[in-house]
Design a protein around this nucleic acid. Structure first.
Lengths: 242, 242
DNA sequence: CAGTGGTCTAGACCACGAA
DNA sequence: TCGTGGTCTAGACCACTGT
């Protein structure tokens, strides 16, 4: 069935997709208005909007209410390096907001502390150009956080941590990777469609004693990020079970 | 703005989502027809279908053309264990189809062989109950494949490989994780909506000499799978760079 | 065949952004 | 205010699944 026109909206989406990926429509370029596009493709507005919704879910089109639709780079991929290793590439600029809070529920479980324990949250938003790229919420037990710089507007140390920089005493890093749709606030912060799935990574780093040094919730928009994990079996020598 | 009714379709989706997750609509249960639902919520058919589309993208509803819409378990999560380690849980039953082919283009690059080199493909579909769960395409250089069982309809060895079973001489496993929408054939094979994002893992395993033993393309539907990666820094001793 | 979902229309009306 | 996208309608017609 591939090659056949499944539906009008798919045909339109295919056409626009080709134009964007081929560069005939430049990244960042404004698309014609939906009324014009609907007229051009000889379909009704809902049908045309349906086609744009497909491209939006792929991250190829950014819709801005009241303005217009814009093409976006299908490239600009960032690679998250797992395992607490330092990434080879230079990390993107990151803006950080620090909040003191008390760990409860899910967060307390992640940090392995009792509910109500003080912790510090670092809300990190990395930027690619002028638009937000990815989001990280890093949680550190309060007594470990102030050692470097608790309220600093920008914390270079944390930037490294966001992208996997090692910390002293780091013994184990466990990373849980899953796919989900962004929450409403995540979609707003990242300026993405709520239908564009994200790569969600929950990272828990523990020291030699088993204490959790850091827990991080990363939200990487699926169209612009990937993660890579490398396991070396020559040094670990494979310990079947403990 | 959360708590406000953003739109009719979101309100309807919220209502149905609650009913499904709360168990008032049982997993596998048939929903009322779209006409009945539209009448019940006092909206037009397109609006109601729009609401169902939201739930479909979350994997909560399965639409079957000509029959009806069905609720699905939001549970039944499978955990993929990275790093070539053996998973703790019993793997799902897997059906395998073996194909001999020649590696070209992307596949040849993955396997690190010249274009046209013989290889064997194992198309593995794991099943949860009677419905397909996840998909793996495992590629092995032809001279390594027949050692065990080239044309066997079911190859237990490969089952282990699919979920991370180790192989002799395995030295390094590199896993690239990203999010994307399924291709048309993947969506058909997995019986999922083409709007339900999947966790795509490209796994390349090499032996001590650096030769690629196996390359695998895994497609794990985002609503029912997650991946976990554990890095032990006490044994690897952290080599900053090579 | 009847019942159901899939697609599309033509147009109304609301909400947002920039002037 | 105007141009834009966002939502919704009422109904037509097609496609699939079962009897």
């Amino acid at each position: 069935m591939i090659g056949t026109v499944a539906s009008r909206r798919h045909a339109i989406a295919d056409d626009l997709r080709t134009q964007i990926t081929a560069g005939r429509i430049q990244p960042g370029e404004r698309l014609p208005s939906e009324a014009q596009l609907a007229c051009h493709y000889e379909v009704s507005t809902p049908t045309l909007r349906n086609a744009l919704a497909l491209l939006q879910a792929e991250g190829l089109v950014e819709k801005i209410h009241g303005k217009s639709n814009y093409a976006r780079q299908p490239l600009s991929r960032t690679t998250y390096v797992g395992g607490g290793r330092t990434p080879a590439q230079t990390p993107l600029p990151v803006s950080i907001r620090t909040t003191k809070l008390r760990a409860r529920g899910h967060l307390a479980a992640l940090l392995g502390v009792t509910s109500g324990s003080p912790a510090t949250e670092f809300l990190c938003v990395s930027h690619a150009g002028k638009s937000p790229h990815s989001l990280a919420r890093v949680y550190v037990p309060r007594d470990l956080a102030p050692a470097t710089a608790p309220d600093a507007p920008s914390w270079p140390q944390e930037t490294a941590s966001l992208l996997g920089g090692p910390r002293p005493q780091l013994a184990k890093v466990e990373e849980n990777v899953h796919v989900r749709l962004p929450t409403a606030s995540e979609a707003a912060t990242l300026r993405i469609s709520s239908t564009l799935a994200i790569l969600a990574i929950t990272r828990v780093a523990t020291d030699i004693t088993g204490r959790v040094i850091e827990a991080a919730l990363l939200a990487l928009p699926g169209d612009r990020a990937e993660a890579i994990f490398t396991t070396d079996h020559t040094t670990t020598e494979r310990r079947p079970e403990g």
